[in-house]
Design a protein around this nucleic acid. Sequence first.
DNA 1: ACTCCGTATGCAACTCTTTGCATATCTCCT
DNA 2: AGGAGATATGCAAAGAGTTGCATACGGAGT
Lengths: 204, 204
Amino acid sequence: MALSHAIMTALLDEDLSGYDLTRKFETSLGFFWAASHQQIYQTLKKLDAEGAVSARAVAQDGRPDKIVYALTPRGHQLLDAWIREESRARPAKDDLFVKLYNVGHTDPAPIEAEIRARHAEHGRRLALYEKIRDRHYAQPRQLPDARKGIYLALSAGIRQERMFIDWCEEALALLATLPQADSEAATTVDADSSRRRTGPKRSG
Amino acid sequence: MALSHAIMTALLDEDLSGYDLTRKFETSLGFFWAASHQQIYQTLKKLDAEGAVSARAVAQDGRPDKIVYALTPRGHQLLDAWIREESRARPAKDDLFVKLYNVGHTDPAPIEAEIRARHAEHGRRLALYEKIRDRHYAQPRQLPDARKGIYLALSAGIRQERMFIDWCEEALALLATLPQADSEAATTVDADSSRRRTGPKRSG
DNA sequence: ACTCCGTATGCAACTCTTTGCATATCTCCT
DNA sequence: AGGAGATATGCAAAGAGTTGCATACGGAGT
């Protein structure tokens, strides 16, 4: 499980509670590896059972108690071993590309709408990443070693967002050349054999 | 389940057996949504039970019999509904970015090695995608509508590979500025107090 | 008092995906 | 006859991730 390793990685610099980790996974590391709080709590228990992290209860004033986790030497070993071993890059699965294969068989409007939404979303993300980079990661070569890797992840994020934004623009331009479905019509799979007009049909 | 929809999408143009689909998911659609044969056979059964596809046995000559699946009108409806509804883009999870957060805390050599491997792999993929584009998708605006979406998915693949290759080069250049861990030193977890000097050490 | 919100942790059920194993037919080669 | 390899389909179990629900404390607002 790579989430285990993402959590251990997050614990490299500081001890954190499940709640802290949840917030960390909503930003920073979470840009590259999303996780829900349920998953995080479960995984922390598993890591604790394995001896990769150690838990200590912390009483708090004005808010509920919490359980803070620290990476153990054993956890560090596991992390190092993982870095050396694993390698498989699983292809990113994205619904949108599957949907694109449906163009010509269905109303393209919802797909265009989704691309427009993505365009906006990736624009926001790009702005966020660039802000972070400009504030904390300008001049990458001058960064302490421990920040260089994070800078590189951020740089990949920035490149990715830019690439996607450019692609959205290409896609919208090309999709604009399609005959628009008026109301519910559209599409069509031309003629005769086997699969005549399975698309949304207008006639009877 | 999006795999259901990917399978239904693959059945838009032609009826296919589980085996055919498996091969199709090793290329084409599979560039964007990977699936093993086990998963495909399971999902086909589920789709059949739901009435989204219909199965028919086909006796063959010179090879084992097969079961060929066709998309039903019901399946077409489900597919259209899915295209309209869903939207959530799950962030691509990639181990490599998690590993990068470990730079400065562990030997960077395996990470560099992985980036080099990715560089090569993405180079191969880029060449493959460009070959497909040049052969079958030159002049996107002249393509039949049903191929425009596929072209766009391919274009996204090409942009992605190029982006990643550029990033690998940036990453290798920056990682080259790190002090290299000599033999087995590195890493480690140093002793006593919580977390001083977790980086690879060279001095003594 | 009451409710909402942020902090903090958790269970249970389900879906999705991966991994390992198993089986069978047919062709081609040795 | 035997084995390799492509074709063709499947089960079972484990791992990973999602969804819905539940609980509890304390502060702030109505």
